[in-house]
Design a protein around this nucleic acid. Sequence first.
RNA 1: GUGCCCAUAGUUCAAUCGGCGGAACGUCUGACUGUGGAUCAGAAGGAUGUGGGUUCGAGCCCCACUGGGCACCCCA
Length: 427
Amino acid sequence: MKRVIPPVKGTRDFYPEQMALRTWLYGMMRQVSESFGYQEYEAPILESLELYAAKSGEELVKEQAYVFTDRGGDAITLRPELTPSLARMVAQRQKELVFPLRWWSFGPFWRYERPQKGRTREFFQWNVDMIGVNSPEADAEIVAVLVSFFRQVGLRPEQVLVMVNNRRLMDARFDAFEIPPTMRPAVSTWIDRREKMEPKEWLAYGREIGLSERQLGQIGEMLEDRELWRRSEELIRFFAATQAMGIGDYVRFEPSIVRGLLYYTGTVIEAWEVGGEIKRAILGGGRYDNLLADVGGEPLPGVGFAMGDVVITLILEKYGLLPQNLNVYPARILVTVFDQDHLLESFKLADELRSAGLKVACYPEAAKLPRQFRYADRMGMQAVLVLGPDEMANGTVTVKDLRQGAQVQVARREAAAFLKEMLARRA
RNA sequence: GUGCCCAUAGUUCAAUCGGCGGAACGUCUGACUGUGGAUCAGAAGGAUGUGGGUUCGAGCCCCACUGGGCACCCCA
């Protein structure tokens, strides 16, 4: 065979089977989002580099974003995340939008990375955000939306958990430990690294970034403190709200959650698989109270999260929660073409059935009947219709039920009703 | 961007020490001239990812590239 041009590295082809799965996921997200009153929106795939330059984090913009110069000489980015676009869209219509604003979206994103398990270069992401309120209860609602999704797809708290921390709480502790603001990004990275390193190594790394022995001890102790959240008024209210909303069993305080994005200001969240087999965050999010002002709007607080399709699919697969019988073949009925002389009459019959509201495929040429029946079988059809000389002579069509193997002749004008009843019986 | 592993028919995989590339499934044809699946018979299908090197001889050994997998980095 000649060489087929391969797909771009890190992209995935969605054949009908995969597309059905993506559509299913999308449907779950829509159902959950709308149940909380969120409105769907979409932003452009292309954004100016400037939009991300300020706040998305060095690594994300400088090393992972797809950036190119367009024919007009502008620096354009394939969006690596949605939140800056959302901030821009809200800032543009800030005076006329109704707040608090609840919006959700599902679409493609790009990051230039080495593809591996749970990570591709092109991926789809579900974004849910509430803008215009800065209460901890709003943070809790955002978490309730994603927990509602977990429940909807059948994930239990023994399988996935939402880890919660708060940047202001951490800043207060860093103040108390006399860690200067300039050191904090490095300290955050260091904290994030703890689970992955040997304790000795980790401490050595801490000294390397300039922490004193006293500070090392204080931070180590802080990370063990499961009650630390009681020092944060915001987290006290947050956890009270999650209890009230009945999602407490999915939510844990976790002081080592820091998140890489620079624009988070308060509560931050990440969801992880409990078994620890899939070592990748299922989703991430948090409160960003300065982002609107940063893209040129009036100050307005926001909170939200993003979940990628790749990791959640791995999780669902691991726990056997992917749907099994997705509808890959829409039509359940095939109209065969008896021979060249009956071709147009078959097309006409198919049209009559569609007008009656049925999903019908017609074989597109005169071929041997066995071939047409085999086609119907492989396309998962339930009924095959034959319109030959006998049927034409007495105004009938022959309907064969592929599941049962039996066939009958019915009056052509009653065919649609007959088929509807047959399909309903099977459903 | 760094490291390790992998690449043979449409698919999943064989091929002994470096010695004429095979099987299963799938596909196509027929058994069946107005009927799918099951069964049986037959057929087609490959410059062994690309480019170089070693050798009398390379699917097999060496190098580079491309793609894939895994880990790091980072993150959805």
